[in-house]
Design a protein around this nucleic acid. Structure first.
Lengths: 250, 250
DNA sequence: ACAAAAGTGTTCCTCTTACACCCATGA
DNA sequence: TCATGGGTGTAAGAGGAACACTTTTGT
């Protein structure tokens, strides 16, 4: 520590959010358009993850919330810090110039903290984000993104799959009342597997914190499905009770 | 984005490492002494986690490695980024003055990235760290630390317990050759449970990647124990084979 | 009556848990 | 020979995996 060979220059920190939603059959991620001047001077446009530099007075979660609020409005979303991308070379040249122009600063380096967010995606929200300059791209259709955002996206996808098997984040994607079929389709999509519906239902219904909402689908041309809901209070209580002794990883 | 009300002032980023070791019966964490001037002008000393500001030319993992290298020398250690502590008020007043004096800078805000490290603790390493100004404190005996380092430590402990049940990090604590008893004691210590030795042995020996080293303890006044070792190559191979379909969290 | 999706049970097998005694060594 | 910790087997129960048909609704 206190090494005189090290310098601490004008760095700044940004947040970049990978926001996932489920449209009923595919995962989508929220992207924004970036207007950009190529080294040749030509104007062009590409896509990036939504993000922002953090200001002096806010912490990282606030910065991430602010970015989210601008694109999806005020609504409760699941938001979690993922990891920091700190390669000194991650933003340079024309990318760095873009940031300095956009924010009116003169930084020599920008680190970014990747955030991971989940929202309940519906038609209303999709239109709202579109009006605000966002775009909900299907995961499979995402191509080259600006900066190192493909790397951040890949990290977020890994994180999603990992977390999905450890915590009940599935419910963050679905409306408050959902059918078991919707839930199953979501699991199949995220984990990229096929699941036997009998075993799936058995397992879900054995969880004390997934309860019937007492209502059914209406107007469907087949047997209407029961709605269920996720009771977070019961989850938190039950979850603490179960100190899993299944102590060795598989 | 581009909000003119936000300012991006002279922030800097540091890393703080929570380094865990196992002395055969208790977990220990590496702390360093800090010499510190109180607001009253009085000189005093307290303990903190090892850390450093990051310099312009390095990324976070390099900064964390550098900090580690200074205290434990060059050896392979398990090192992972945990999370960022970004409260704008986390370092201020005399704490901020201490940083500015120590590094010869004039920052108004410091964010820190918590790192999580595991080392194979032995007598030699303990003496080495002590010579370098470090101290291996038993987890249960850690009291008030400088800055917000108690908060970072608590986060790291949660992280350790969590990760311990998901990945074979236990072996990072033990010498290359270890007895099953040592391994069991480690599990019992970290997870704070008692484990039946027959079931534990059965489970561990069923893992393809824990293999007998073909040697035994020597000079012990009881039946000598067999040594085993962890084969990381096999672990990586086998682990990819098992795409766990056990798809719903408990 | 038909199309379409919801909902339901059983068997086999694997993994987890609980539990108590003999064995090899140095002193 | 004794003290010390190392090492072993079995039975009962819980949970996971595989598998096919009946029910309810709208048209």
């Amino acid at each position: 520590m206190g090494n005189p060979n090290l310098t601490y220059d004008n760095q700044a920190i940004s947040v970049d959010c990978t926001v996932f939603g489920f449209d009923g059959s595919a995962l989508r991620v929220l992207l924004v358009h970036r207007h950009h001047t190529l080294p040749s001077g030509e104007e062009t446009e590409d896509l990036k993850l939504p993000g922002s530099l953090i200001s002096d007075c806010e912490d990282l979660p606030s910065a991430a919330s602010r970015v989210m609020r601008e694109l999806i409005g005020v609504r409760s979303i699941y938001l979690k810090q993922m990891e920091v991308f700190s390669d000194p070379q991650r933003v340079r040249g024309s990318e760095l110039r873009w940031i300095n122009t956009f924010y009116g600063v003169s930084l020599s380096r920008v680190l970014t903290v990747g955030f991971f967010a989940l929202v309940k995606l519906d038609e209303k929200l999709m239109h709202y984000s579109k009006r605000k300059g966002g775009e909900w791209a299907e995961l499979g259709h995402v191509r080259r993104l600006a900066l190192d955002h493909n790397k951040i996206l890949v990290t977020a996808i890994d994180y999603l799959i990992q977390l999905f098997q450890q915590e009940p984040i599935a419910f963050e994607f679905l409306p408050r009342k959902f059918t078991l079929k919707q839930l199953q389709k979501l699991y199949e999509t995220v984990l990229d597997v096929e699941i036997d519906n009998r075993n799936f239902r058995k397992k879900i219904l054995s969880l004390e914190y997934v309860l019937p909402a007492g209502k059914c689908e209406e107007g469907v041309p087949h047997k209407p499905a029961q709605y269920y809901f996720f009771d977070r209070k019961i989850y938190k209580r039950e979850n603490k009770k179960i100190l899993k002794l299944n102590f060795v990883y598989r």
